[in-house]
Each structure stands twice: as C-alpha cells, then as structure tokens.
C-alpha cells in the first residue's frame, strides 16, 4: 500500500519544527506502524535525507518507549494498543496520516517525534514507592491480600508510563499516570503506611512539572494502551482529600532521636 505521511520534523529542542510531507511507498499491510517508519526511513536515507527520529524499544507493547500521535489520537486508532503493535492493516491505501509528537509543556521535544518524559520519572521519585530496605522482609505470605484488592492493584500497575494520557488530554494532564501508581499502592497493605505522604507529594510534583489539570473528560482512559480505568483517578482524589485533611503542620524544634 502507498500512504502520505505528514510528520513533525524538528532538529533539536531549541529549533522550530514544522510538519513535512513524506511519501510512503510499497508498505506491507502486515507490517507494524513502526516497521512502516523503518521502511520510510531506509528510503529517506537512500536519498540523503536524515531519517525520522522516533522513540521505540521493545516493540511488543510493554516498555512504553514508543509514542506518536497518529491522526490526532495517541498510539493511533486501535483501542488498547501501543503504536508498536498497531498494524498498517488499520489504514487505507492512499490515506494521509498525520504523525506528531506528544504535545505538552512538560514533555519538551528533543528531536522530531522524540520527547523528554523525565517529568514522569520525577513524579515517581516524589513518592511512587514503598520505603523498604533490601534485606530480610517478612515472608511473602505473612500478609494475605484479598484477591480483589490484588487484582485491582494489578489493573493499575500495568501502566507502562508512555504518556498517552497526557497526549490525549486537552489539558495535558497526567492524572491517569499518577493515579495508577497512587491507586496501586493504596490498595495494597504494603503501601498503606506512606499513603498520605505519597499522594500529596506526587500531586504536588505533577503541578511543579507544568502539567495541566483534570477535567474528567476521560480521553486518557480512551487513549490508554493498557486500558487503565479513570476509577483510579477517583481513588486518588479520595486519597488526596483524606491525606490533606489528616495532614499535620510540621512542628518546629523537635529534631533528633
């Protein structure tokens, strides 16, 4: 099949970018979207044009490295699918395909379709963990976890940190991403001791990174390749309110042992 691509090209973080038209010829319908870009890139290089830079790694939908807003939809038109698992049979011969990077102030573009998602790491560093030293924790079966809680926690834990939620949201809000971690750890007994501190810190960091706010449109859920439910955002909201209500003002002069 033949297609016409409209691709965002940008030299580096500082330069101005623009949409460029690139033709894709003889693309196999069975190739993945990224393999289509590989093919186009080979052709570009033959004609002396630098290939299109795009992030990708595992190409099996789990590493969260691939991105791309395809015809206005993060990861393209297929529901619950990352770009690397999207296949060209989802497109028509002769179709015009717009390919753009994630667009958010907090995700600066590094080159072409590659953005810097370091903000996501910093949000996790703010509190997305259980403080446990490596050594001799108690036996894994010491604390039974009700299956429904474990399953729900897992539903949130499948987040691959790709950033599609931010890309899909008209406010560039990462609520689904943040909520997935808050929700996972608040559902498990291991995460409970730090639940207040965690949710406050992660929500604060989200704002500090320059992301927008949630307006409950659920575009994130619709775009999420792992089909994470906005129910987790509600849980985070509850956690936040609870934590804010219980939070104590720091006392002064009580340091030491």
């Amino acid at each position: 099949m033949d297609i016409t691509l409209h691709v965002w090209r940008q030299k580096n973080a500082k330069s101005q970018g623009k949409m460029e038209v690139i033709e894709g010829k003889n693309i196999s319908e069975d190739s993945s979207f990224l393999e289509m870009l590989d093919t186009v890139n080979e052709t570009l290089q033959e004609s002396g044009v630098e290939p299109i830079a795009f992030d990708h790694d595992c190409r099996e939908g789990i590493c969260g490295m691939c991105s791309l807003v395809i015809n206005g939809e993060p990861h393209g038109p297929e529901y619950g699918t990352t770009t690397c698992q999207l296949h060209m049979r989802s497109f028509k011969n002769g179709q015009h395909i717009f390919i753009e990077p994630w667009r958010a102030k907090a995700f600066p573009i590094l080159r072409d379709l590659i953005v810097d998602r370091g903000a996501f790491d910093r949000i996790q560093q703010a509190g997305g963990f259980v403080s446990v030293n490596v050594g001799s924790p108690q036996d894994a079966n010491c604390i039974p976890v009700p299956k429904q809680d474990a399953d729900k926690a897992f539903d949130a834990a499948v987040c691959i940190g790709c950033g599609a939620c931010v890309a899909a949201c008209k406010n560039a809000s990462p609520m689904l991403f943040v909520a997935a971690k808050v929700s996972q750890l608040s559902l498990l007994p291991q995460g409970k001791p730090e639940r207040e501190k965690r949710v406050l810190a992660m929500v604060d960091q989200m704002k500090a990174e320059g992301f927008g706010n949630c307006t409950n449109q659920y575009e994130c859920e619709a775009a999420c390749p792992k089909e994470i439910s906005v129910e987790h955002i509600a849980r985070m909201n509850r956690e936040y309110f609870r934590a804010a209500a219980l939070e104590e003002s720091p006392k002064e002069g009580h340091g030491g042992e």
Partner: peptide, 22 residues
C-alpha cells in the same frame, strides 16, 4: 525465596488465590 519476600514488600502485585495468598 528472599526475592519473593522483597518484591511483595515493595508492592509488586503478584497473582493471588481467593485466600489472599500467593
């Protein structure tokens, strides 16, 4: 054996049966 203990303590959501055990 320690690995499983460590991971559960970190909040890794392993599969569980209806009794809540791994």
């Amino acid at each position: 054996r320690n690995i499983i203990d460590q991971c559960v303590a970190q909040g890794v959501p392993f599969a569980r049966d209806y009794g809540g055990l791994l």
